[in-house]
Design a protein around this nucleic acid. Structure first.
Lengths: 141, 141
DNA sequence: TAATATCCTACTAAACTAATAGGAATTATA
DNA sequence: TATAATTCCTATTAGTTTAGTAGGATATTA
């Protein structure tokens, strides 16, 4: 139940782009430097975020990444699912293969927990995080 | 974000004991057989549950395990924490070592998610699960 | 003393995580 | 038209974690 570095770094990258990438492309090298994340590793992560449609990109000098959707639309759930696939606490919630269904009550229980988690993740939008960030920076000024 | 087999098996074992272990010792071999879990592996798991105080045991022939607390008290959170240690989605929620606190807003965000998850897990008692189980078995009768 | 348990200490194969490496393709600009 | 800056693509790898296995010591009952 630990978040992977991919999810943590990926979220930071998206928050960075959301905060500093208005009307411009943000390069991996910039994010890597400012957020202190290995360039090459971040590359892998950006690829995931792009191929699941959260980011778009522009190649070549002056190029970089930009958000594919509005910051009011993108949620933590989107980010996590893009990077690690949909979250199912137990496999039987997605695939079928349990032969103990008669006796099994835990499926419903885990499903319940899963839903609570999912709902929470969906409720946290990139916009909220960026706002929070601005308030925080201000309070230090 | 998948539950480990230890957590899944451990939970099943506890539910089994809660359901069938009134006023008697339940052996690992019985649980192993009825729940289809490798005996030796289950042994490891039971040790974890015992050493964190959820189970007590009696050695020797006729011995086995029994709940150390009431089924009204034991929650999913207890079970998960006993097996895998306290759940912190990100390390900075437990240990100290982040040098980016000034800019970091994600700590609060993850903490928020963490709390929601924790609260949910604490709300699900072994008693609820056993009740659910009985209802289900009844409905098949 | 035999059978049935837990208890204890190790070992191991497979999968997953967190990177790293090298270069090809694309684009802006000097 | 070079050159620099960028994404894109394909691999490889070291380390960690997971899921399980193995063998025997110790305790208890009958």
């Amino acid at each position: 139940m630990k978040l992977s570095t991919k999810i943590r770094y990926g979220t930071r990258a998206l928050v960075y782009i959301a905060a500093f990438g208005k009307n411009r492309y943000v390069s991996i090298s910039e994010i890597s430097e400012k957020e202190n994340i290995s360039l090459k590793y971040l590359e892998n992560i950006m690829t995931l975020l792009k191929s699941s449609g959260l980011l778009r990109s522009m190649q070549g000098a002056g190029g970089g990444y930009y958000l594919a959707k509005s910051i009011d639309e993108l949620t933590l759930a989107d980010i996590m699912y893009s990077i690690s696939g949909p979250i199912f606490l137990v496999r039987c919630l997605s695939e079928y293969e349990c032969n103990r269904e008669m006796e099994c009550v835990l499926k419903d229980v885990w499903n319940d927990v899963n839903n609570v988690l999912d709902k929470k993740l969906r409720s946290i939008k990139l916009k909220n995080i960026v706002k929070k960030r601005k308030r925080k920076i201000k309070s230090f000024a």
